[in-house]
Design a protein around this nucleic acid. Structure first.
Lengths: 150, 150
DNA sequence: CGACATTAAGTGTAAAAACATAGATTTGCG
DNA sequence: CGCAAATCTATGTTTTTACACTTAATGTCG
């Protein structure tokens, strides 16, 4: 636990909402740090991984750059260049969309699917570290975060 | 609500922990996006803001670069350069520490304190948008996130 | 004291993010 | 149809991050 974690608990005079704000940002950063260990092994950035996951969700259909952008965790990403990197590693293909020549069809390759499978295995192991909440509690946080954003 | 938010709810076959992982990352990105609006007005990055907040917490004491690093939400930040930027705007001072000449004493200036006060006001207004949870629910999420990280 | 490990802060560099904008295509409407 | 607005992707540029390394100072232990 970092010192911020301690600090969050001590901010008695702050509103619960301020605490929640910082707590969520801090927890996300903590998760990112942990995940990066796995990503780095495969020379992927979190965003590249995120893109591949979305593309797998569409497979065997293609996804447009815009669809990717909409579904990315980080909306500000420059998807074109992320695709460039993935294409350079043969993890995706990119070809013009037939029905709308402005669009581009991005599809995950077998190599990309295989890489995700490998990472899946590691993720399953890694996620076991995160079971300090009961499934019920995890569900509860999920529901409350959804409600918060609504 | 972005499409990921919808998607999270639909991932019925995933473990609650996977959902929670993505949900926290997504919520943090959502919050960052909202906050950036305020920061940009004042030409601050989230990390510069974070540093200023920590320095205000220490005021009128100084903070070492290491103390800042430990308390930053994002641990990977290069604090030296963040301080450079803040110093260039006269929001902090930097002077050698007397007791340990390796260390540097970083202190928030009056200008920095004043800037934070301005931002505080905006934040209070902004945070009102985040009251779709009851205080009790906010407390609950805070407790559960703390437990999750432990 | 003196060699060696440790700690603190800063820097060089390549990669990635942020932001604005361009170029090409499609859409909608008079 | 024909033109303006909207949409989709890509690119140029600046700033920030990630990571390895350097320099300086302190701590440790013989």
């Amino acid at each position: 636990m970092g010192s911020i974690g301690e600090e969050i608990k001590q901010m008695e005079f702050w509103s619960e909402y301020s605490k929640l704000l910082i707590n969520v940002l801090y927890t996300a950063s903590w998760l990112n740090g942990l995940q990066n260990g796995i990503f780095k092994e495969h020379k992927l950035t979190p965003q590249q991984y995120n893109s591949l996951r979305i593309l797998r969700g569409q497979y065997p259909e293609a996804a447009s750059v815009n669809l990717l952008k909409d579904r990315m965790i980080d909306k500000m990403s420059n998807v074109s260049r992320i695709i460039d990197k993935l294409k350079a590693k043969d993890l995706v293909t990119r070809r013009p969309c037939k029905h709308d020549r402005r669009q581009v069809d991005v599809t995950i390759t077998d190599k990309g699917l295989k890489l995700l499978e490998t990472i899946d295995e590691q993720m399953v192991e890694w996620e076991k570290q995160l079971h300090s909440l009961s499934p019920k509690e995890a569900t509860q946080v999920n529901e409350l975060l959804d409600k918060w954003r609504s």
